[in-house]
Computed example of a mutant assay.
Amino acid sequence: MKIDFHIHTYHSPDSLMKPARILRIAKRRGLDGIVICDHNTIKGGIEAQKINDDKNFHVIVGAEIATDAGDVTGIFLTEEIESRNFEDVVKEIWAQNGKVILNHPYRRHDLSKIDLSKIDFIEGYNSRLNEEDNQKAIKLANDYGIPIIAGSDAHCYPEIGNSRTVVKDLESLLPLNLEYKKSKQIYVTLSQYAKAFKSRSVRVFISATIVYIKYSARKCIKAIKSAFVR
Rank of each mutant, 00 (worst) to 15 (best):
A26F: 02
S199Q: 14
N103D: 14
A150Q: 08
L77E: 03
Y180Q: 07
P105F: 04
N97I: 00
S117N: 15
Y193P: 08
G124E: 11
V167H: 04
V89D: 00
A227P: 04
A66I: 01
E159G: 12
E131K: 15
S152L: 06
V100N: 13
I3V: 08
G145V: 01
L116K: 03
Q96V: 04
L23E: 05
F228C: 01
K225L: 13
R230E: 15
L23M: 07
E159F: 04
K225W: 09
E87Y: 00
I149D: 05
P19V: 10
T165L: 11
D120N: 15
D115H: 01
Y180C: 00
L116T: 00
R200W: 12
Q185W: 12
E79F: 03
G62K: 13
Y106L: 03
K168G: 05
L77I: 07
I114N: 03
L111A: 07
E87Q: 08
I60C: 08
F5W: 09
K99S: 12
G45D: 03
A217C: 14
D54T: 10
T67Q: 01
S172P: 02
H109S: 01
I93D: 01
A217M: 14
V100H: 07
A217T: 14
M17L: 11
I160K: 01
I22E: 08
I22S: 11
D169T: 02
P105R: 03
I224W: 15
S163K: 02
D32R: 07
K118H: 08
A227R: 11
R200K: 14
Q192W: 08
L178R: 08
K99W: 08
E123V: 00
G74I: 00
I34Y: 02
G44P: 01
D14T: 01
D53W: 02
I34C: 12
K184D: 11
D153T: 06
R230L: 13
S172Q: 07
A63Y: 05
S117C: 07
I186N: 08
S127R: 10
I22G: 10
R28P: 02
S83T: 04
R107Y: 15
V89C: 02
Y180S: 03
L16N: 13
A137G: 09
P105D: 12
R29T: 12
L23T: 06
Y106N: 05
H155T: 09
V72Y: 00
I81R: 15
K184T: 05
E131W: 14
A66G: 03
G151F: 06
I93C: 03
R29P: 12
L31F: 04
K50M: 13
C220A: 15
R128E: 06
D32V: 04
E79L: 04
